[in-house]
Write a protein that binds this DNA or RNA. Structure first.
Lengths: 231, 231
DNA sequence: CGATGCTTTGAATCTCGTCAAGATGTGTGG
DNA sequence: CCACACATCTTGACGAGATTCAAAGCATCG
């Protein structure tokens, strides 16, 4: 039985996911009743910029990214999304960013209105949604700091630290990088060439190594942490 | 009678301020009951980083800034605050940033718990607080985009656009800059020298002029807008 | 009116971006 | 399973833009 054939009401929400933390079985069942499991292949959009949409998504498997294009065509990657992450909550009518899958992604889709109405009867759910929003803001402020203050190789180290903290399965021994160098560059406000050169520099200094093109190993964690400069 | 002598209950909250929008007289009175009017002289902290605190502030007069220092001592200005702005809402135990006044500031101080408890009975107040948080996030995402993608003079134009949108009293004819060049530099991820040179360049191209050191005039609004590149 | 701090300008340096070429994977069809 | 085509990634050379260091101009405040 593949995931998309599971009837929503019997879906097992992982309880360590931010949205579901501390919820009772009844609350989880209410959530499951309004959740639809979606599957997208790689390089598909969950939603696009400048569109009206009232869905929010909760990633179950796979990786995605949040991107914004400016009117002049420049692209900024605002975040990478991993299993458990929650995206799409918005107060404005139009999407200010798009969400694109990097790998095949399975995600629960909720109607924002229905989700909000559930918060009326579940203070814990409301709390969880507030926490999620707060984490999104905290991440954005970290990114502001990095982009405003750090050099290329320091930004790479910040990225590595973020992966270690937020990517399920990431260890010092192996981090999987499902995104392209271009995605990394657009996230860190650099060019592909600079990303490549900075990785080369960090390898030369034995701070990291890249066993494969999309694999990364942390050789000197203290140094990565020091360069990332986030407490 | 100076502002700090006004008994809180009779304070006239400006209704165009985000927190008070659409509230009934009764709701405003409830808010006034828990508000304390604070006055700080220039270059004082409303709160500092890494401290526990449960107050939120609503600026009435004056200008302030939000700053973050890293462990290595680098400083990023996260925002400038103007009358009507609201700051300090937080989910984490410790302050992730400090708020420093640039001019003399008067501000209402609320206890976060009390404020949140008021939202139980006032859906409009809850809505307003959600809007405020959303605007803070939107601003942070704009800043990420600017820091990641734009050149120095484009960042200056972004700043000018932000002042025009958010600073009460700012017009094309005159924008008052109560902050130092260092503050601007730390906000835009540049050095003072680069800020100065970029201003000089924009003046040379007749896009702006600086009648005084802390005054700025927009000479070519379309160009400023184009360079700022935010829709 | 001098002292102090902020701002501007200049020159040298460095980092990063751009352009171009070559290397390394990845996927496809034979 | 191999060979070719296409994507992506890396590396090099060069130039533009930003930082650094230094000095000089301007305010403001006693």
């Amino acid at each position: 039985m593949t995931p998309n054939e599971l009837p929503p009401a019997t879906v097992n929400f992982g309880r360590n996911y931010a949205l579901y933390k501390g919820l009772s079985d009844a609350e989880l069942r209410d959530l499951a009743d309004i959740a639809k499991l979606r599957i997208r292949s790689e390089q598909q959009y969950l939603f696009t910029q400048h569109t009206t949409a009232d869905q929010v998504f909760n990633l179950v498997t796979g990786t995605a990214l949040v991107e914004r294009m400016s009117s002049s065509g420049r692209r900024q990657v605002l975040a990478f999304l991993f299993p458990g992450d929650f995206v799409g909550l918005s107060n404005s009518d139009l999407r200010e960013y798009a969400v694109k899958t990097l790998t095949e992604v399975t995600a629960y889709e909720f109607n924002q209105q229905k989700l909000r109405s559930l918060t009326e009867t579940s203070p814990q759910l409301k709390e969880n949604m507030k926490d999620i929003s707060a984490n999104v803001l905290a991440h954005a402020l970290d990114q502001v700091f990095i982009l405003g203050q750090k050099k290329a190789d320091e930004r790479i180290c910040f990225l590595v630290m973020m992966f270690l903290q937020r990517m399920p399965g990431a260890t010092l021994e192996h981090i999987d990088l499902p995104m392209t160098r271009q995605d990394i560059a657009d996230y860190l406000g650099l060019t592909v060439e600079t990303v490549s050169r900075s990785l080369a520099k960090l390898k030369r200094e034995n701070i990291i190594s890249t066993p494969s093109r999309h694999g990364l190993r942390v050789e000197d964690y203290d140094e990565v942490r020091r360069l990332a400069d986030i407490e």
